[in-house]
C-alpha cells in the first residue's frame, strides 16, 4: 500500500530500507526513481549499477535490472554493461567514497570516454557504512572517526572534477531541493553522453553528529540556506555568492560524440555488423 510511484519503481517487499532515520539517501533514491519514471523508460531496459557503501544499497531496492558490485568499481562494471548492450539505460548510484576515493580512477576515465551512463553520487561527506571515517568530500577541518583532530585533506568538488575529466553533463542537487533534483536527474538521463550528478545527502548519524550539525532537519535547512541555483547565481554579483554552493545543471557539452556510437561505427567499418 505505498504510493503508486514507489509501488511501480521500487521493490516494495524489500522495504523499509536499511538507512538510518533521516538519511538523505532515501530522498535521493526516490528522486532517481521519479526521474526514471518521468523519462518514460521501459523498466526492462533500465540497469542500476552500484558499488559498496550506504549509497550502493539503493540498487537492491530498485525494481530494475540491478547490479551491486565491488567497492569503487560500479562505473567499470557499468561500462561493460553499456558496451555490451547500448540499448540499455545505465544508471550508476554510488557514494562519495565509492566514486571518488577507491573508484576515482574509474570515474575520471568514464568521464573521459563520454560513455552514455548517468552517474549519481549520493554524497554524505563521510564513510557511513563503516562508521564515520572522513571521505574525499569531508570538508577541510571537519571531523571523522579517523580525523579526530580535524580533517587536513582538502575536499573534492565532484562536478568540477567530472567536468575537467570530460563529463559532458554535470550538475548538483540536494536532498532538500527534491523537485529540482528530479528534473536535473531527468535531464542527465536524457543527455546522450556521460553525465554526473552530485546528490548532496544528509548523514545525521555520523557526519552530522561528529560535526555538531544537528539533525536531518537542521542539515537540510543548511542546504536550503547555502545552495543557490546556478542560473540564478549567474545573474548575481560575486559578493552575493560568497560561501554559496551552486546547484542545478552546472555544465553541458553537446559537441562530443558518445562512446558506444563511435564503437558501433568501428564495427560497421570492419563489417562486423553483418
Amino acid at each position: 500500500m505505498p504510493s503508486k510511484l514507489i509501488e511501480k519503481t521500487l521493490r516494495v517487499n524489500r522495504l523499509p530500507h536499511i538507512w538510518c532515520p533521516g538519511c538523505g539517501h532515501g530522498i535521493l533514491m526516490r528522486d532517481v526513481a521519479q526521474a526514471i519514471d518521468n523519462c518514460g523508460l521501459d523498466p526492462d531496459k533500465v540497469v542500476i549499477v552500484s558499488g559498496i557503501g550506504c549509497s550502493s544499497r539503493a540498487a537492491g531496492y530498485m525494481n530494475y535490472n540491478t547490479l551491486h558490485t565491488t567497492h569503487g568499481r560500479a562505473l567499470a562494471f557499468a561500462t561493460g554493461v553499456k558496451m555490451a548492450n547500448p540499448d540499455l539505460t545505465v544508471i550508476c548510484i554510488t557514494g562519495d567514497g565509492d566514486c571518488t576515493a577507491i573508484g576515482g580512477n574509474h570515474l575520471i576515465h568514464a568521464c573521459r570516454r563520454n560513455i552514455d551512463i548517468t552517474s549519481i553520487v549520493f554524497n554524505n561527506n563521510i564513510y557511513g557504512m563503516t562508521g564515520g571515517q572522513y571521505s574525499p568530500t569531508t570538508p577541510h577541518g571537519e571531523k571523522g572517526t579517523t580525523a579526530p583532530y580535524g580533517n587536513i585533506d582538502y575536499n573534492f568538488d565532484i562536478p568540477k572534477l567530472a567536468e575537467a575529466a570530460g563529463a559532458t553533463f554535470t550538475g548538483r542537487c540536494t536532498a532538500y531541493h527534491a523537485p529540482q533534483a528530479i528534473k536535473l536527474i531527468e535531464d542527465a538521463i536524457k543527455h546522450h553522453g556521460f553525465s554526473l550528478i552530485e546528490g548532496m545527502s544528509v548523514c545525521p548519524t555520523y557526519y552530522g553528529r561528529k560535526n555538531k550539525k544537528g539533525d536531518s532537519v537542521a542539515m537540510m535547512n543548511w542546504q536550503k540556506d547555502t545552495c543557490i541555483d546556478a542560473k540564478v547565481a549567474s545573474k548575481l554579483p560575486p559578493e552575493k555568492l560568497e560561501g554559496k554552493i551552486l546547484i542545478g545543471e552546472l555544465s553541458r557539452d553537446e559537441s562530443k560524440e558518445e562512446y558506444t556510437d563511435m564503437y558501433m561505427k568501428i564495427i560497421e567499418k570492419c563489417g562486423g555488423n553483418k
Partner: peptide, 15 residues
C-alpha cells in the same frame, strides 16, 4: 506534496 518528496522512508504521500 512536499512531505512525500522529502520523506526518506516513503511513509507519507498524496493519493
Amino acid at each position: 506534496g512536499l512531505c512525500e518528496l522529502r520523506c526518506p522512508d516513503y511513509a507519507i504521500w498524496l493519493e
